[in-house]
Amino acid sequence: MKRGTGFSWGAFFGRWGVLIAIGLITVVFAALLPTFLSPSNVVSILRSISIVTVIAIGLTIALAVNGLDLSIGSTATLASALVVSFFVWYSLPFSISLALALILSLSVALVNILLIVKFRIPDLVATLSTMFIVEGIAMTYTGGGSISEGMPRLDGTPTDGTIPPLFKALGQVPAIIVIMLVAVALVHIFLNHTRYGRLMYATGGNLEAARLAGIPVDRYRALAYVLSALFAAVGGILIASRIGSAQVNAGAGYLMPAVAAAFIGFSFAGQGKPNAIGTFAGAVLIGVLENGLVMMSVPYYSMNIVKGTILALALASTYWHKKH
C-alpha cells in the first residue's frame, strides 16, 4: 500500500528492516567466522529453520483473520506422537500413517473453532486452553514418555513396527527444505492471489465491515484455524521424521519462534499485516542469528535472550510506524 509521497528513512527501515538486519548479521558473522557462508552452513541454516517456518506459516494464516493460535506447538507434538505410534505400535503403512496423523491432528482445529467462533472466547485464551489440553492428550497417549523403534507399548507388549526410510528422508536435506519452500510459496499464493486469501485478510482487517459486506466471516475464521492446525501437524510430522522418534512435548519449543517469525514478518515490504514471505524472512533472521551464535559458542540456554530481543526490536519497528 502506498502512503504519502516523500521518502523517509524511518519508513525505509520499517519496510526493509528485516532484510537489512539479516544482511548486517550475515556480514558480521561472515567476518568473524570463516565458515559461516560456506554452502554446507547455509544449507544447515535453512534446515534448522524449516520446521519453525512450516509451523509459522500456518500461524500466519490464523493471524491473517486477526486470530491467534497458541495451540500449534501442542498440535505438532500430537502429530509427531501419532505418526510414530502408527509406525511403531500399529505397523501401518507410510501413507496411511501420515494421512491419519494429519486428520486426527485437525481435531484440535475443531475445538479451537468451537471455542472461538461458536462460544466467542478470545483467541488468546481459547487456544491457550487447547494448548494445554492437546499437550495433555499427546502425553497421555504416549504414557508420558517417548516412542521409538523397538520400544514396547504402554502395556509392555513388544513392538516390531519400523519407521520407513522414506519417512525419515522427509526430515533430511533436501526434502525438508523443499517442503518448507513449497509451504511458503503455497501460502503466499493463497493469501495474495486467491479470493479466499483476500477475504481472509478482509475478515481480519475489519470484522464488522466484512460481515456487513456479506463475507461469511465465521467460515473464513474456521478455515484459518483448520489451516494453521494443518501446517502445525505437518511441522510435527517433520519433527518426528527429523529425529526418527516421538519425544515428549517435541513441538512445544517451536511455538515461540514461530510466533516471533510471523510477527517479525508483519512489517516486511511495508505490508503491515501477516504475510508468508515476511514470516519466512522472520524465520531466516532468527535462524541466521541462532546459527552464528552457536558457532561462536554462545550456550544454547542463553539463546532465548537474543531471540526475544530480536522479536522486541522487530515489533518496535512495526508498531512504531503504525503510530506515525
Binding site: Y196, G205, A213
Partner: peptide, 28 residues
C-alpha cells in the same frame, strides 16, 4: 468502522464484495 478497510486501497475496497466475478477458480 463498518464500511471500509482504511489501510487497503480504493480498488481493494471497491471490489471486495464482487470478487466472485473477478476470480475464476478462486484465482484473483
Amino acid at each position: 468502522k463498518e464500511g471500509l478497510w482504511l489501510d487497503a486501497s480504493v480498488a481493494w475496497n471497491l471490489t471486495i464484495a464482487a470478487l466472485d466475478r473477478m476470480s475464476p477458480w478462486g484465482i484473483l
